[in-house]
Amino acid sequence: MITVDESSPVPPFEQIREQLGDLIRTGAMEAGQRLPSIRQLAGDLRVAAGTVARAYSELEAAGLLELSRATGARVRPGHDVPENIRRAAADFAAGARDQSLTLEEALGVVRAQWRQT
């Protein structure tokens, strides 16, 4: 499931692109899996069809999706993060929640560590 928060400063297409990208990279969406049509997703999220189309085309440009007029949008293979990284991320997220950190705070920790290494 993905959500769009209208009160967020992040534009809706970016919210959609980001969440779909995360789901593909973490393996929650498998290679070859078909995504909902642009019209369906736009209707369910109450956004314009162009918003979803833009998110899809950016994911296609990033090599995560393949778009076809006949079969719609499919997840391209070879983009999921290795299993050990996913496990480490799950442990980290669980620890951050235990410490009552917000998502932004947790990501800040990752960013800081990333720069140091």
Binding site: M1, I2, T3, V4, D5, E6, S7, L20, L23, M29, R34, L35, P36, S37, Q40, L41, G43, D44, L45, R46, V47, G72
Partner: peptide
């Protein structure tokens, strides 16, 4: 046409193609 539904502050969608 489908029923017109108001835009909620936060909307969600499942990623299963219908």
């Amino acid at each position: 046409p489908p029923a017109k539904l108001p835009a909620a502050a936060k909307s969600s969608a499942v990623l299963v193609r219908r």
